[in-house]
Amino acid sequence: MRLNSARQAWHDAYYQPWDSVMAVASEWAKLGASVQTTCKSVNANHAAHQAIAGAVQAAISRLPPHLRAFGDFMYSPLDQPAQREMAEAGVFRIAVEVGQRMTQKKFERAELVAKGILFRYRMMNQGGQGGCSDPLEKPEAFREWLYQVYGVKLDSRNWEREWQPFCEACFGACNDFDRRALGPVSTVITELLEVA
Score class of each variant (00 low, 15 high):
residue 1 M to N: 01
residue 1 M to W: 00
residue 4 N to W: 04
residue 4 N to P: 00
residue 5 S to N: 02
residue 6 A to Y: 05
residue 8 Q to Y: 00
residue 11 H to V: 01
residue 11 H to Q: 04
residue 22 M to K: 10
residue 25 A to T: 01
residue 26 S to H: 04
residue 27 E to G: 08
residue 30 K to H: 10
residue 30 K to R: 14
residue 32 G to D: 08
residue 33 A to I: 12
residue 36 Q to L: 11
residue 39 C to N: 07
residue 40 K to V: 07
residue 40 K to T: 05
residue 41 S to V: 12
residue 42 V to T: 04
residue 43 N to E: 03
residue 44 A to K: 01
residue 45 N to K: 04
residue 48 A to G: 02
residue 49 H to V: 01
residue 51 A to T: 05
residue 55 A to Q: 07
residue 57 Q to K: 07
residue 57 Q to W: 01
residue 59 A to E: 04
residue 64 P to Q: 14
residue 66 H to W: 13
residue 68 R to F: 07
residue 69 A to W: 14
residue 69 A to R: 13
residue 71 G to H: 08
residue 72 D to A: 13
residue 73 F to Q: 09
residue 73 F to T: 10
residue 75 Y to D: 07
residue 78 L to T: 13
residue 79 D to C: 13
residue 80 Q to P: 06
residue 81 P to Q: 09
residue 82 A to Y: 02
residue 83 Q to P: 06
residue 85 E to C: 11
residue 86 M to F: 09
residue 86 M to T: 11
residue 88 E to G: 06
residue 89 A to V: 08
residue 95 A to T: 09
residue 95 A to S: 11
residue 98 V to P: 04
residue 98 V to H: 15
residue 103 T to R: 08
residue 104 Q to S: 07
residue 106 K to N: 12
residue 107 F to V: 02
residue 108 E to P: 03
residue 110 A to L: 07
residue 114 A to N: 10
residue 114 A to R: 11
residue 115 K to T: 04
residue 116 G to T: 15
residue 116 G to F: 14
residue 117 I to T: 10
residue 119 F to S: 11
residue 121 Y to M: 07
residue 122 R to T: 11
residue 123 M to Q: 15
residue 124 M to P: 02
residue 127 G to H: 03
residue 128 G to H: 00
residue 128 G to Y: 01
residue 133 S to Y: 00
residue 134 D to M: 06
residue 135 P to Q: 04
residue 136 L to W: 15
residue 136 L to C: 06
residue 137 E to S: 11
residue 138 K to P: 00
residue 139 P to E: 07
residue 139 P to Q: 09
residue 141 A to V: 08
residue 142 F to V: 00
residue 142 F to Y: 13
residue 146 L to M: 15
residue 148 Q to P: 02
residue 150 Y to I: 06
residue 152 V to L: 09
residue 157 R to V: 06
residue 159 W to L: 11
residue 160 E to L: 12
residue 161 R to A: 11
residue 163 W to F: 14
residue 171 F to H: 08
residue 172 G to D: 03
residue 172 G to S: 05
residue 173 A to C: 08
residue 178 D to T: 00
residue 180 R to A: 12
residue 186 S to D: 13
residue 186 S to L: 03
residue 194 E to M: 10
residue 194 E to R: 13
residue 196 A to W: 05
